[in-house]
């Protein structure tokens, strides 16, 4: 079933979109024979964003284009391509948007600085709370 596409259609109250009658691409719903390769394809697909859905990975979508993208990913991995090379191939075409794994760029570094800043903030609070001034509480 085209569950996800239809979910979107339903939630956004749009008319049911016309759909192609072609069967899905060979690797859209077929796994690779080598379990190790299938695993790395699956791991990559979980982190690629479906182009025609609102907010889903291509691994979780029944949209035709997500199926075609899975076909690309599986056949490229079958051909021995590195998953990260496939990711860069897609980023080159669609921008960082297509990957759920943000790359460190001039635009995204604050995302990666955030945990550090939050840890510093934690250290600040903790230092205030546990400072050496009166370590035994208010017994004094």
């Amino acid at each position: 079933m085209r569950g996800f596409l239809l979910l979107l259609v339903a939630l956004l109250a749009q008319p049911v979109a016309a759909q192609d009658s072609l069967p899905p691409a060979p690797y859209a719903y077929k796994q690779l024979d080598d379990p190790a390769k299938e695993k790395s394809a699956q791991d990559l697909m979980m982190t690629l964003r479906c182009l025609t859905c609102q907010s889903q990975s291509i691994a979780d979508s029944d949209a035709a284009m997500a199926g075609d993208m899975r076909h690309q990913v599986r056949s490229r991995i079958e051909a021995g391509e590195d998953p990260e090379a496939i990711r860069s191939w897609l980023i080159e075409r669609y921008g960082d948007w297509v990957s759920y794994q943000p790359q460190v760029t001039a635009m995204t570094w604050p995302l990666f600085a955030a945990p550090v800043i939050l840890l510093l903030f934690a250290a600040f609070i903790v230092r205030k709370r546990f400072g050496r001034a009166k370590p035994t509480g208010e017994k004094s």
Partner: peptide, 17 residues
Amino acid sequence: TKVSVGPPYFNPVSAIF
């Protein structure tokens, strides 16, 4: 600029805490 932030960010980063 458009970016997406998903499980590959949230899982490891929240794990730090």
